[in-house]
Simulated scan of single mutants.
Amino acid sequence: MSLLETLKAEKLLWQMSFSGAVSVGEGYRGELILVPGKINASGNQNPPEKLAAQTLLIAKEGKIDFLAGYVRHLDYLNHFAEKFVPYCKAGIPFYFFVEDIGKTMSFELADHRFYVFPLDEGTVWNEFCDMLGLEKGDFKGLDAGEKIVKVAEEGANFKPKAEEVTFEVALTRTIAIHKEARGPV
């Protein structure tokens, strides 16, 4: 069974926009379930309570080799480490955009380096491609899966400038999330 089939069987994938074979192994673009929804009174499962959204993932030889994504709250990364690190190649870095932080930081968690970036608007795809210096033309002629491969290849050795802290210190630096109301007045 492939890694993506395993994650699907474990009910850890949600709302995927791409999942399948790519030139280097497997690629995935979608959401990862960190905390599943509760079973409601009618016996159906509610939507997930916590997600790693907008995830870009490449797996090689049955292990996650590259992963970038978005979480609403920094403490969600505890759930990520618990659920997904066992499926990862040892020591790979993770890149997460986080809504409730105000500045870029990096820390060790579960024997992996996490780079976290503030994000209140925008998408992981656009922001990460900008950080890597990738432009629209760099993806010309590539299908959906190979676009993820391109980002992963460019991001493989990406070491952004970030203040190194412990995860515990990073948790003390979260900020309140403020969303502006939009729409007709």
Rank of each mutant, 00 (worst) to 15 (best):
2 S>T: 15
9 A>P: 09
10 E>V: 10
13 L>T: 09
14 W>C: 03
14 W>H: 05
17 S>H: 14
18 F>K: 04
19 S>D: 12
21 A>G: 10
21 A>E: 14
23 S>G: 11
26 E>G: 01
27 G>Y: 08
29 R>L: 07
29 R>F: 08
29 R>N: 07
30 G>W: 01
30 G>C: 05
32 L>A: 07
34 L>S: 00
37 G>C: 00
37 G>K: 03
38 K>W: 04
39 I>Y: 03
41 A>I: 11
41 A>S: 13
44 N>G: 13
47 P>V: 01
48 P>D: 01
49 E>D: 11
52 A>C: 15
53 A>P: 07
54 Q>E: 15
55 T>Q: 09
56 L>C: 06
56 L>G: 07
56 L>T: 07
57 L>W: 10
58 I>L: 07
59 A>L: 06
60 K>H: 10
63 K>A: 11
64 I>G: 03
65 D>M: 09
65 D>T: 13
66 F>N: 06
66 F>D: 07
66 F>H: 10
68 A>R: 03
70 Y>K: 08
70 Y>M: 01
73 H>E: 12
76 Y>L: 08
78 N>P: 10
79 H>I: 03
82 E>K: 15
83 K>P: 04
83 K>Y: 07
84 F>M: 01
85 V>L: 06
85 V>W: 04
85 V>R: 05
86 P>M: 03
86 P>C: 05
86 P>S: 03
88 C>M: 15
88 C>L: 11
91 G>N: 12
92 I>T: 09
92 I>Q: 09
93 P>E: 06
93 P>S: 10
93 P>W: 04
95 Y>A: 09
95 Y>D: 10
99 E>A: 11
101 I>K: 02
101 I>D: 03
101 I>H: 05
102 G>D: 04
103 K>G: 02
104 T>Y: 02
105 M>S: 01
105 M>Q: 09
108 E>S: 15
108 E>V: 14
110 A>F: 05
111 D>Q: 15
111 D>R: 15
113 R>V: 14
114 F>H: 06
116 V>T: 06
116 V>N: 02
116 V>W: 03
116 V>A: 04
117 F>I: 00
117 F>E: 05
118 P>V: 00
120 D>T: 01
123 T>L: 01
124 V>R: 02
125 W>P: 02
126 N>C: 06
126 N>D: 11
130 D>R: 15
130 D>N: 14
131 M>K: 11
132 L>E: 03
134 L>I: 04
137 G>S: 14
138 D>G: 05
138 D>T: 08
139 F>E: 06
140 K>T: 14
142 L>Y: 06
143 D>N: 13
144 A>L: 13
145 G>F: 00
145 G>M: 00
148 I>W: 00
149 V>E: 01
150 K>E: 04
150 K>P: 02
152 A>F: 07
153 E>F: 09
155 G>W: 05
157 N>G: 13
159 K>Y: 09
161 K>R: 13
164 E>Q: 15
166 T>I: 09
166 T>C: 08
168 E>K: 15
169 V>L: 12
171 L>D: 09
171 L>E: 13
172 T>S: 15
172 T>W: 11
172 T>Q: 14
175 I>F: 00
176 A>E: 13
177 I>C: 01
177 I>T: 02
180 E>F: 01
181 A>G: 11
181 A>Y: 14
183 G>L: 08
183 G>E: 10
184 P>R: 10
185 V>Y: 14
